[in-house]
Design a protein around this nucleic acid. Structure first.
Lengths: 157, 157
DNA sequence: TTTAATTATATCGTGCGCGATATAATTGCG
DNA sequence: CGCAATTATATCGCGCACGATATAATTAAA
């Protein structure tokens, strides 16, 4: 059960030197914290993200949600069907362009927003972290995200 | 297809004001970038994380990997079986304590490290982002992660 | 020293994520 | 007009994540 001498590992492969791992782990931990608050409302975390987009944009096409959430239809279609089954949204083909599926909020879906309002603040304030760190993190991520997604699309086009 | 007036949305629920969403999105984008480099090696991103831990610690118990990666056995057991099938690791019950499964690197698994060495640097340097942002991001995440995981465990014990 | 807690791992079910591919509607071009 | 691109959504398959639960081995405690 002895550990390998850590000097033999190239520094760029040590977990502590990685950026990707804390990003990955922090994202999962954050999601778990949200799930605790969302589960009583019957929402998963990705569903909550989609609902936030719909609270801003509905009625709108699936495409709009797809671009904003950076999720493809292979993820969104089943997720949206589940939201529909829960009675939070309605999905209808656009009569003008039958390719487009338009998403509408139901009254239930609209009301759910009230229950979600307090979640982000309650969650972040319970973290034993400097307020400044959270603000700075958000700023850096807002700069990083376009760079990342630009790099991701590069191979596609 | 008109958008709801954005003034009606409470500011704490606007996607742009959230910390959780850019964290979630950035993590996924980063994972995708890694997948591009890892796929030719036959590795997924979570498998790569586990291999990094094993390069540091093997031979070691599943428990060690579980704590370091912050992943439970319901995720790890199938993942480790796949690594074993690929001939990268071996899994054997500890004779001293039959509850423990000890993970060993095979020669193939050890050699894979050489192919992975260049990945993190190649990846990060291709990002159109200030070097300082990446360093600062890493620092903040290293402070945030314990706060997050502490909050996550709180309900468990 | 039986027996009750604890520990380490495994299993099950559900819901993402995403690469690859399919399908149908619309647009554009000769 | 006719037909080839393009666009919007859907489907399929696999591998995570994770809550809940199970099982077997070890330790602790009465």
């Amino acid at each position: 059960m002895s550990a390998e001498a850590s000097g033999t590992i190239p520094p760029q492969l040590q977990l502590d030197n990685q950026l990707c791992f804390p990003l990955y782990a922090a994202s999962r931990m954050m999601t778990r914290l949200y799930q605790d608050k969302l589960a009583p409302l019957g929402l998963t975390y990705p569903q909550y993200i989609v609902m936030m987009i719909l609270w801003e944009r509905a009625p709108c096409a699936v495409k709009v949600v797809s671009e904003r959430a950076m999720l493809n239809t292979n993820t969104l279609t089943p997720l949206l069907k589940r939201l529909e089954q829960q009675g939070l949204i309605a999905r209808r083909r656009d009569t003008a362009d039958e390719r487009v599926v338009v998403l509408y909020l139901t009254e239930l879906g609209r009301r759910l927003r009230d229950d979600c309002e307090c979640i982000p603040e309650a969650l972040l304030s319970s973290l034993a972290v400097q307020e400044g760190d959270l603000l700075q993190l958000k700023e850096i991520l807002h700069r990083l995200l376009p760079a990342l997604s630009g790099q991701v699309d590069e191979g596609v086009e």
